[in-house]
């Protein structure tokens, strides 16, 4: 501010005031949108009767009751089992999604093939297809495979780049990267897969991390597919376990449900913040004129 000379002080004052106003509005709206989240976290530490008794955020009689009982759950398994179950299919799912999406996207972005435009358009069209349309045929198919009540139907399809959105995302990212580096790698003796591994993958790491992150979060939140394919409670993931806690008893222990919801949020949050720096910093800088 010291750079602004005396005669312009009025202007500076107006500028500061408008900035203040802007931030006040932004913070206000931000809080409003996050309020349910804060409420959920706070409610985890309230006794059950207090949750609907008062609209206040801060627990009047703080207690760990909800967390402890919620963790034990009303079933024979603890919440840890459900968390581990979630990871048991999300990990292969994320891995397969990343590998298959990158391979397919690399093909679309860099190789000539007959009818490429058409294939690409078809792939984008699958993004627009409502998921529910496929539920019944897929269910019948996986039943024939004998895969019901296993995690296979949840992640095996991802090995075939079925998530058009991710392929599309990586293709767009690749289109923004000049192919010179890859050509240099070809001259250096790489075959296509080596080019992909040694040059393309490190360069598109931000996109790959985004894919992994989105797939991770969406899968953790996914309710419908586990509900359809899993029948034994011992295999339930977090989303189903939470639902179960709601309808097993007449009077739902909401503080337990909310406490477990809060815990269920943590993996996503942790992964997101770990990956954050890759969103901020692209790593192409410096390879080409810039």
């Amino acid at each position: 501010m010291s750079l602004i000379s005396a005669p312009r002080r009025d202007v500076a004052w107006i500028g500061r005031f408008s900035a203040l106003l802007r931030y006040a509005v932004l913070i206000g709206v931000g809080l409003l949108m996050l309020y349910p989240l804060f409420w959920m976290v706070a409610a985890s530490f309230k006794p059950n009767h207090e949750i609907f008794g008062s609209a206040g955020l801060w627990p009047q009689e703080p207690t760990m009751d909800g967390v402890v009982k919620g963790w034990r759950t009303g079933t024979e398994y603890s919440f840890a089992t459900y968390l581990l179950n979630s990871f048991a299919f999300i990990m292969p799912k994320v891995l397969l999604t990343v590998v298959s999406s990158v391979l397919v996207a690399y093909g679309f972005a860099r190789f000539r093939m007959p009818g490429k435009q058409l294939w690409f358009a078809l792939m984008v069209a699958t993004i627009l297809l409502p998921k529910s349309v496929l539920l019944i045929p897929q269910y019948l198919m996986f039943r024939e495979f004998g895969w019901l009540d296993t995690y296979l139907p949840l992640y095996v399809p991802c090995a075939f780049a079925t998530d058009g959105f991710f392929v599309f995302m990586v293709v767009q990212f690749l289109r923004g990267i000049p192919p010179d580096m890859e050509e240099a790698a070809v001259i250096d003796g790489c075959n296509s897969l080596q080019v992909l591994w040694h040059v393309v993958v490190p360069v598109i790491m931000p996109a790959i991390i985004s894919v992994a992150l989105f797939q991770f979060m969406w899968s953790l939140n996914d309710f419908l597919y586990p509900l359809i394919y899993l029948s034994s409670v011992g295999k339930y993931p977090v989303a189903l376990a939470l639902k179960m806690a709601i309808d097993v008893t007449e009077a739902t222990a909401w503080n337990q449900v909310l406490a477990m919801s809060t815990i269920a949020l943590l993996p996503s949050l942790i992964v997101f913040f770990l990956a954050q720096k890759y969103f901020v910093e692209g790593i192409t800088s410096g390879s080409v004129k810039g």
């Binding site: 000049p178 010179d180 580096m181 240099a184 001259i187 490190p202 360069v203």
Partner: peptide
């Protein structure tokens, strides 16, 4: 038995 220098340098950034 060739090697090429590109206009954009095309160095591997990582």
């Amino acid at each position: 038995g060739i090697a090429m220098v590109f206009q954009s340098y095309a160095l591997y950034p990582h």
